[in-house]
Design a protein around this nucleic acid. Sequence first.
DNA 1: TATGAATGAGCTTTCATTCAT
DNA 2: TATGAATGAAAGCTCATTCAT
Lengths: 209, 209, 209, 209
Amino acid sequence: MSGVSTAADRAAERAEQRRADIVHAAFKVFTQRGYHATGIADIAGELGIGHGTFYRYFENKRDILVHVLADAAKRLLSVIDFDEPGDTDSLAEYRAQTERICHRLFTLFAESPELVRLLFVEGLAADPELTELTLGTHRAIAEGTALYLRNGVHKGFLPADLDVEVTAHALVGVIISCGLSLLTAADPVAERDRWIRAGTRVMFDGIAH
Amino acid sequence: MSGVSTAADRAAERAEQRRADIVHAAFKVFTQRGYHATGIADIAGELGIGHGTFYRYFENKRDILVHVLADAAKRLLSVIDFDEPGDTDSLAEYRAQTERICHRLFTLFAESPELVRLLFVEGLAADPELTELTLGTHRAIAEGTALYLRNGVHKGFLPADLDVEVTAHALVGVIISCGLSLLTAADPVAERDRWIRAGTRVMFDGIAH
Amino acid sequence: MSGVSTAADRAAERAEQRRADIVHAAFKVFTQRGYHATGIADIAGELGIGHGTFYRYFENKRDILVHVLADAAKRLLSVIDFDEPGDTDSLAEYRAQTERICHRLFTLFAESPELVRLLFVEGLAADPELTELTLGTHRAIAEGTALYLRNGVHKGFLPADLDVEVTAHALVGVIISCGLSLLTAADPVAERDRWIRAGTRVMFDGIAH
Amino acid sequence: MSGVSTAADRAAERAEQRRADIVHAAFKVFTQRGYHATGIADIAGELGIGHGTFYRYFENKRDILVHVLADAAKRLLSVIDFDEPGDTDSLAEYRAQTERICHRLFTLFAESPELVRLLFVEGLAADPELTELTLGTHRAIAEGTALYLRNGVHKGFLPADLDVEVTAHALVGVIISCGLSLLTAADPVAERDRWIRAGTRVMFDGIAH
DNA sequence: TATGAATGAGCTTTCATTCAT
DNA sequence: TATGAATGAAAGCTCATTCAT
């Protein structure tokens, strides 16, 4: 609050900024060349800093990937968490809400395929331990999704015997598949809209209606 | 038919057997340690052969992965292709068929999580080119799935305006998510059954019914 | 002489023929790709035989090179030894003889640059020991040359204080340089004739006349 | 001039020094064991540095050989270029000059047989491309020699119809042969003197005088 | 704090040689 | 006798990480 130790504060601030810069640069090169094909020198080169400097901010190559993944997961989750599970009181409201969320989410996928690449591709296979971590992120998304389902069950507009956990996970599968599809889509925006429509349709109506 | 050139035949047979052995061993170590953490020496060691021998049968490390992936994809696809898309004439029949397919598929996942690991994890991120190849396998599964949907649309028990391609892809997402879930499931068989039930339910009825 | 053990004789003959074939094939590939870049498989492949067969006729890779070098040296020396050192009784006769020898020798170089490559390039640097062996061949040529010079000194048409050994060696240097020049000559025959003329001229008259 | 950026200067200087050290070490081991028998580890070991360090200064094994050869060629050529072709106006002066050059050159050979080994043996056969490069060095020596001959023709103390190019090349052959001879000479200095005498004699007088 | 020179573990790959068939 | 499958020593090279400056 006070002006005391401002110099130290500024230093800490600059350090924080540099950490963020490095995470950003690593995100870029990891998604471009892939985690294993990327060298620390590539990350440092992207920023124009010495690669020794990297080690003043991160433990090692794996460490930066963990941070990049966490950052990416946070970005993705913020898109889902933007809405409030408890806000909806009817199926129609929930469906509208779902469409909004899918729109935001799939727009994010269409606009930053790097994020998809990182969370659904690179992070998944960097090493066995990170597979677990990334699957944890998937689980976190599933849990976020489950909150909405539970609200519906609680409010009565979703059936009481819905297997909330597995269903939520299945929906995450749809999200993953959408992300991977947009990765190679010729027209990502058009593809995104097809996914929003077809995705919410199968989710709410099933394929038969 | 005749006994002529039996020696050469036997040699070719043994070579083919050895190739299969190497693919099998590579499958095992790739799924255990991950592609990048695996050395050729690990594959050779698994078989108790000299690592120079490996290079008599495969070009290089990438080559064996491609073969392992192809083998895994074939195994997975054969489970789906086992049924005949045109066999069903009503929604009820299709639903029963779907349950059978899911049962076989998810049983495969539960019994050989390595296959899941390979097709949905390792193969996806070994290198950018292999990501494409693996996404191609996903597309192949989606196309297999689409055949069933198209049969339903054609027969009239599925709505004419169903977005078959995207819906099929979405279902592949469910399959992927199921595979990944079973990877860490405490009781894979029980989990498998939940996925069969919840999966077919959301697929046919949507979440609302 | 008798017909006894003809079968064994024929076998030995065939073996000898095959040794010669292998030497010939090795000569070809060594001069094309260089000794170190050549594999045993290349030699065997050139002959269409299994590479295991190679080892039934030669100890190892170095062994075949020694034989190839010996064969090449023999061919080169036979061109020099074709004449009789004692045949000439005057400077004019010796000069005519030298021109004949040079003609034969340089024609050999022009026609089979591979022989040059082998004796003055590959053999020289295959390994330290073979350098000695090849320098021995050079010395053998020098000794052959020295015989002619000694005849001249003995007959009195060359000065008594001529340093026969070193001069002979110097002439070998001219031969080597001619060989290497023809290796990259655009018109080897024309170049050959220039070397015969200029070479005998400097040898007999020095540069000043 | 100023003290500015002295640190960077010193770094560059040290780097240059290290490059020179590596060239020097490589020169030594290449001439001892031969190019192909030498490993990068041998070069690094000679200097007591890690072999990874080698790759900070040179692209690969071939790269260092090229540099070693260039360095050796420069040293040899500097001995020839020390004199001025145009300095002599009579045959006697040219002969004296030639003797001086031969003295310096053959002394270099006697004192550093490694240089001979490198330029006339190793460099010649390391690989086909380097054969060309080394023959290029021989051509450069021939061209240097040709300058002297042309001076004599121009001044009139050498015959107008002298085939300068081929004669120069022939003299290079004598130089090569001298170098190779000194390689195995029991008493290199005595041998050197014989070559100076016999070499200049045959060059200027031919064998007959 | 920033740097990049130095390091060496560890990898992929080659190929001369052996030997069972 | 002819073969080629099997082998593993050995080499070149990369790159994450350390640390003196």
